[in-house]
């Protein structure tokens, strides 16, 4: 880890006046966000409220139009790779190559992260998401839910301190959703930081330490998950 990634009092994410404009549209504006290390934060809001944009900016996939941020004390503009090394993002896309098998995908990912994974370990991982039987099938033949499970395995490959999840429950069946919930609980007890964006409020508001409601690209409200549920009902 970078030397500037300091002790546990350093916020995992700190943004100041973050803004992102696509064309003539501000997808995110005046975003001052602070996420403590070890916190599980839920981003809620309607479609187009800026949840995905915020996650992509944190992951460094898009460049902010305005404002600044730090990830564990590091400036992503200066130390992009070091920042990316501390975090992992599973977005709307599955990042898969249709012609590769599930096992090969896992191996390519681990190797590119600079680790080596024995085949038995990889199969063990696949068993977690119930894909060990299909390990030699090209992922092009997978259903949407199976692809999602495989891609979510990226969060378990190595030890990222910050886990960013964009709609982790979508496309998953009940058992899959329960599994992700367990994982998130596990991350919390391991002291990792989790930021998830979700429309599945009943499930995610129960999980989170803090909920943030985004509206038209701005932070409208912050509070506990329970308060959010009381305030906006079951769906946003």
């Amino acid at each position: 880890m970078s030397p500037s990634a300091a002790d546990s009092t350093t916020p995992a994410i700190q943004t100041a006046g973050l803004g992102k404009r696509f064309g003539r549209q501000w997808a995110l504006a005046h975003c001052d966000l602070q996420v403590r290390t070890g916190e599980v934060v839920l981003l809620a809001g309607a479609n187009g409220s800026g949840k995905t944009t915020l996650l992509r900016l944190i992951a460094g996939l898009d460049k902010p139009t305005l404002g600044s941020m730090t990830i564990y004390g590091m400036d992503p503009a200066q130390e992009k790779l070091a920042c990316r090394r501390t975090l992992t993002l599973v977005g709307h896309d599955n990042y898969l190559y249709s012609q590769l098998t599930a096992l090969e995908m896992i191996q390519v990912w681990t190797r590119l992260r600079g680790a080596e994974l024995a085949e038995t370990e990889a199969i063990e991982l696949l068993r977690e998401v119930d894909l060990d039987e299909r390990r030699d099938t090209p992922v092009g033949g997978f259903s949407a839910g199976m692809r999602k499970r495989l891609t979510l395995l990226r969060t378990r490959l190595e030890e990222p301190k910050l886990v960013l999840l964009d709609e982790p429950f979508s496309a998953l069946d009940a058992s899959g959703q329960r599994l992700i919930e367990e994982w998130i609980e596990g991350y919390r007890s391991a002291g990792k930081t989790v930021v998830l964006a979700s429309h599945n409020l009943p499930r995610s508001s129960r999980l989170c330490d803090r909920a943030i409601l985004l509206h038209q690209g701005q932070i409208l409200w912050q509070g506990s998950g329970k308060d959010l549920l009381d305030r906006v009902g079951t769906t946003v």
């Binding site: 090394r85 896309d93 990042y95 190559y97 990912w109 590119l112 692809r147």
Partner: peptide, 17 residues
């Protein structure tokens, strides 16, 4: 093939230099 399921973004996130 990189853009089909945005695999290239997945690579950059790993992170691949």
């Amino acid at each position: 093939v990189e853009q089909e399921q945005r695999a290239i973004e997945g690579l950059l996130l790993l992170p691949v230099d």
